[in-house]
Computed example of a mutant assay.
Amino acid sequence: MADGVITSEGEAETGGDGLRGLTYPLGAPPAPGEAIQAARGVLWLRLPLPMQLNHINVYAIEDGDGWAVVDTGIRTPESLAAWEAALAGPLGGRPVTRVICTHMHPDHIGLAGWLCQRFDAPLLMTQLEYVTGRMLVADNGPAPEAGAIFWRASGWTEAQIDGWRSSYGRFTKGVFHMPSTYERLTGGQVLSIGGEDWTIVIGNGHSPEHACLWRRSDNVFISGDQILPRISSNISVWPTEPLADPLDDWMTSLDRLGDLLPAGTFVLPGHGDPFTGVLPRIEALKRGHTVSLKRLERTLREPKRAVDVFASLFARPVGDGILGMATGEAIAHLNYLAGQGRVRRERDADGVDWWSLTQTETA
């Protein structure tokens, strides 16, 4: 499970520049080990990722004599080296007072345990994110047969399923041992960090209980992966909950954030550059998924497997490296339409699911 790198064709780059309602006031991003002041008392750091989405943003908030860190990067030698340089350089050798993780994907929690251990600092997460992260870190295999059934039903070949089996447990490799205790974050909770109040805002869909941080005094919003400027976060169904409807959760969250955040909010995202224009961006994200759903319905005039609908959803070819995320996102869109009674699923004798429009749907 990881952050999405696929942008749906209907949403690709929508709102990605000033002409479409977004501006990027900070200029070029910081190099690994360096930092840029993003807002009052907030430093923006960027760490490398060993994947197509090649970076993650983390933020350090002044907290008395030290720093409260938001998100941590993945467990790799390159990320550790960047942290060492940042701690000795722009963070001035001051300690980390607490580690706040927006959600449980490895690029966000991968070095949480390392930072907490090094500075004897507490970990702060929402309950579902912490528990799910601990569960996934502990799940080294063997690969469960339920997963093979899920991927086979999606249209994967036996060779692709064998590849999934052989790589099972990759989540664990990207995450340093997580702390055995944590401090729970809840929606509406107010954290005092360096004498400033930050309100916890919960989002859903990309992950189960994603925490964002909002400083109302100047409308600075650390969004994690709940709102990104140039790509839409991966919204996927996974074998552990095959009938989930995360896209409905995601769309509902976007509506809620659109009603909550002022137009002038300055967004500090988990990927991409800090930006203004949150309301047009939220509308663009919603519109992108709506367009994709309409295109998907046209595709389903004839029965299709989940792997057959990629062209309806994604602007680029899907290779084996992102096959799991692409399939999960395709099923999320299919489950969303099924929840509205717009499509149906039938499993054949080989265990493969075929999706089509319902009989009441007009072509």
Rank of each mutant, 00 (worst) to 15 (best):
A2E: 10
D3Q: 12
I6T: 11
T7Y: 07
S8F: 12
G18Y: 10
R20F: 14
L22E: 09
A31T: 14
G33H: 01
Q37H: 07
G41Q: 03
V42A: 11
W44V: 11
M51L: 09
M51W: 11
Q52F: 14
H55M: 02
H55W: 04
H55V: 01
V58G: 02
V58L: 12
I61V: 15
E62V: 06
E62T: 09
D63T: 10
A68R: 01
D71R: 02
I74D: 12
P77I: 10
E78N: 10
E78P: 07
L80N: 03
L80M: 10
A82R: 06
A82G: 10
A85Y: 08
A86Y: 04
A86D: 04
A86F: 04
L87S: 02
L87C: 07
A88D: 14
G89R: 04
R94H: 00
P95I: 00
V96N: 00
V96G: 00
V99D: 02
I100D: 01
I100R: 02
T102W: 05
H103F: 13
I109Q: 06
L111N: 11
W114V: 09
R118C: 03
F119K: 07
D120C: 07
D120R: 11
D120G: 14
L124P: 00
L124I: 04
L124K: 00
T126L: 00
Y130E: 03
V131P: 02
V131D: 11
V131Q: 14
T132A: 11
T132G: 06
V137D: 07
V137Q: 15
V137L: 13
A138K: 15
D139Y: 10
D139R: 15
P142I: 04
P144F: 07
E145S: 12
A153P: 03
G155W: 00
A159D: 15
G163Y: 06
G163N: 11
G174P: 02
E183L: 11
E183M: 06
R184M: 15
L185W: 10
L185V: 11
T186E: 13
G187S: 14
I193F: 06
G195Q: 09
G195P: 08
G195N: 09
E196W: 12
D197W: 04
I200P: 07
S207C: 09
E209A: 07
H210C: 06
R215E: 05
N219M: 05
S223I: 08
G224S: 14
Q226P: 01
I231M: 15
S232W: 01
S233K: 04
S233C: 11
I235M: 08
I235P: 00
V237G: 10
P239T: 06
E241T: 13
A244Y: 01
L254P: 03
R256A: 15
L257N: 02
G272V: 05
F275G: 09
T276I: 08
G277E: 00
L279W: 04
P280K: 03
I282Q: 07
K286M: 10
L293A: 14
T299M: 15
L300H: 09
V307I: 15
V309D: 03
A311M: 02
P317R: 14
L323E: 13
L323C: 09
I331N: 01
I331S: 02
Y336K: 03
R344Y: 13
R345I: 08
E346M: 08
R347D: 06
A349G: 08
W354D: 05
W355H: 12
S356Y: 01
T360M: 05
E361R: 15
T362D: 09
A363L: 14
